[in-house]
Every structure is written in structure tokens, then in C-alpha cells.
Amino acid sequence: MTAEAVADRLNAAGIRADARREKSALAALTAPSFVILGLMLFIPVGWLFWLSFIEDGAFSLENYTRMVVEPAYRSIFLTTLELSVLVTVLSVLLGYPVAYMIAMLPPRAASITLTLVLVPFWTAILVRTYAWLVLLQRRGVVNSVLMSWGIIDEPLQLVHNFTGTAIGMLHIMIPFLVLPLYANMRAIDRDYVRAAASLGASPVTAFFKVYLPLSIPGLAAGTVMVFIICLGFYITPQFLGGGRVTTISMKIQQNVATYFNWGAASSLGVVLFLSTILIFWGFSRLFPLRRITEVGGS
């Protein structure tokens, strides 16, 4: 039957019109968010991008060459990278067992525990950061307890430095790791580990040969999320770093607020943005994220 013949058939035109109407209704519903995204994100970002190539009203690459040439910038990049890697690795080590435990709990207990993990999300990051300040400072709770138990004689320098920044960020990041990982683990059929055991795998072997590989997609999703958020983190290093830790986002803020140098700030923003995209792309090539939902299915 030719296409023309079908077109003339009973109700064909009306049915096609219905399909079109459904599509345009969907488009109308999503249009507002697209417009807002376009106006509020792409235009300002595009403008900043353009600014980063302007110096004294003319096109210039100075904002970018400065990053390569000046040692101060190199140490900022290094600090940000070190902090992000450390916090990401610790998040994985601490978060994986938590996600695993929640995934193994019966549904009711699992949802309660998951809520406990999520409670910090309901509190502002600033509040949590100040809470850490209270806990970690020289005469803070942690030092007092350690000293009263005789474990230490002098208060430890736990805050206003790299250590304090890492502790505060770790606390904020762990839920970002646990959530995607838990979702992945929940979808892993328990029969896989049972099958491995029946075939002769000890619990440790079954974990490393079967469970861990099946949880890699969720682990990768959580890891990349934590790492990317770390790269652009501002509040915690600002308040717990005590001026000894300078991250890229802090330098951006400095460039804008102290030096009014929008070009320098923009160029850092562009570099941060591009490296984020690059990391995300690299990860998605290594671990196809879409497979999270497929594992354990069927």
C-alpha cells in the first residue's frame, strides 16, 4: 500500500492531527523551563565567556596565559585538584559500605536509614560548615573530648587549614556518593551473589568478582558527581580553610569582589567549566552511566 493510499483511509487525517496535538502540548509544557534556562544560563555564561577574551577593550589571551605563567595560579589549581581527589577517595571509602548496608536492609529499615543519610541535605551548607567550625576549633568539642580522655595533650589544629576543609567537604559530599550507588545496588538481584557462592566463591571473592563490578556504574556516577561538585566548591574552603586553602572558586570570587577583574574571573570559570565537561565525558566513556538501570534487570 502506498503512503498516499494510507493517507486517504478512514480517519487517517484526524488521527495524525491528534498525534501532532499531543506533541505540541508536550512542547508547550517544557517551553517555559527552556526559556528560563536559555535566558538565565546561556546568555550570562556566554557573556562571561566573551569577557574572558577581552583586556582593556581589545581581544586578548592574557587572562589565559596568566594561569599558565603565574605560579600562584598553578598552586591554586593544584590545591583544588588535591582537595577534590582526597575528598572523592574518602567519600568512596566511607560511602560504599553505607550504601551497601542500606541496600541489604529490608525495605522499611532501608528507607529510614536513607532518610538519615539525607537529613544533612535539609540543612544549609553554610550552617553545616559553621557547625564543623564549632566542633573542630581549638577549644571545640572534638579537641576537648580528646584531651579529657588523655589521648592528646595539646589541641589538634583541625580547622582553618586543609584538614578542616577536607572534613567539612567530606561530610557534605558523602550523600552525593551514597544516593546513586544505593540506587544501583538496590537493582542488583541477590541471586547474583548467591549464584557466585553456589559456584564456589567465598564471600570476599563473590564481592570482588561479582558484586563490585555490578555496582561500578553507580559508583562511577557518584564519584564523578562528588568530584565535579568538589572542583567548584566555595563555601566550605572559604570558612574552614582559614585563608590557607585557596580553591579556583575562591579565586574567582576574589577576582570579582576584590579586584573587579571580570575577565580574570571569567577565564577561570571557563577553565573550570571545560575541565568539568572533560572529566564527565571521560567518565562516561569509561563507564556508560545509562547502564545503571540495566544491571540487574531482566
Binding site: D191, R194, A195, A197, S198, T205, V210, E294
Partner: peptide, 18 residues
């Protein structure tokens, strides 16, 4: 423990390692 029983088990879900 199951890994020392030397049994073949076929599961309803097959449990083939994906």
C-alpha cells in the same frame, strides 16, 4: 557455608553474571 557445599544451583532468575 554455601560456597563449600559443591552444589549446582539453577535460579529462577538464572542469575547469569551480566
Amino acid at each position: 557455608p554455601p560456597h563449600k557445599r559443591n552444589l549446582g544451583v539453577v535460579f529462577q532468575s538464572y542469575a547469569l553474571f551480566p
